[in-house]
Simulated scan of single mutants.
Amino acid sequence: MSKVTDVILVNEQDEPIGVMEKMEAHRKAVLHRAFSIFIFNSKGEMLLQQRAQGKYHSGGLWTNTCCSHPLPGEDTLHAATRRLQEEMGFTTLLEKVFDFVYLAEFEHGLTEHEFDHVFVGLYEGRMTPDPTEVKDYCYKSLEEIEATLLSHPQKYTAWFNIAFPKVQQWASDNLMKNFPQKLSS
């Protein structure tokens, strides 16, 4: 398993401007490249994971299927595919659908300031999540997730609260119309 020790520092246009040790970047709130993966099944339900308690921030919170940072010099799609296998124990075809920048403060003086590339995929087979990364996982309907985000946003990670409405909009425009056929071809 590849552990990210350095992250790619970027400007607001996602152009690389340097490299920094991951925890230092999170302490200093420096903008860096990241990715988030949202996996759906054929019913249009989203695969959520509950982060392991031992994560350096947001332990025990629910979030999208997988997220991380590409290694310096690594293509972001390749990193997303690699990390999905390492974290959730499966691979599937991924498609980039949008990106966004966010800034969020966490416990222990850490901050996420990320240029986040969002990928989607379709999968409903066997999974073998890494227990040091994932405490639990489940598929939920977008309506159920939306209701829970409104009633209990603190149960979810900061980036999921930001990204979910954008992914939900993408899903309403694309998911059941042509996305499954596109990914299976």
Rank of each mutant, 00 (worst) to 15 (best):
E45V: 12
D173Q: 10
A79V: 01
P72A: 06
T132F: 01
L84R: 03
F164Y: 04
H26V: 13
L103T: 07
E124Q: 13
V4Q: 07
F35D: 04
G121D: 08
D14I: 10
N161D: 02
M20Q: 09
V19Y: 03
M20E: 13
K182W: 09
M46Q: 15
G18C: 10
K177L: 12
F119K: 00
L149P: 03
V97Y: 05
L9P: 08
N178G: 05
P131C: 12
R33D: 04
N161L: 07
L122A: 02
T92L: 10
A171P: 04
I8E: 00
G89R: 10
A158N: 15
P72N: 07
K28S: 13
H117M: 00
L103K: 11
G59T: 13
F35K: 02
Y156D: 10
R51D: 07
R82Y: 12
S141G: 15
A158K: 11
E112Q: 14
K140W: 02
L61G: 05
S58K: 15
K177D: 14
C67F: 11
R33M: 05
K182M: 11
D75K: 05
K166Y: 10
W62N: 13
N161W: 13
P16R: 00
L71R: 07
M88G: 15
T65G: 00
I162P: 02
Q169C: 10
A29P: 11
H117Y: 04
L103H: 09
V7S: 04
K43A: 08
D6R: 04
H117G: 00
Q181Y: 06
L47E: 05
L48I: 12
H152E: 09
N11H: 15
P72V: 15
F119C: 05
S2E: 02
Q168M: 15
N11Y: 12
G73I: 01
T81M: 14
L149K: 06
E21L: 10
R126F: 08
T81I: 10
E24I: 14
T76S: 02
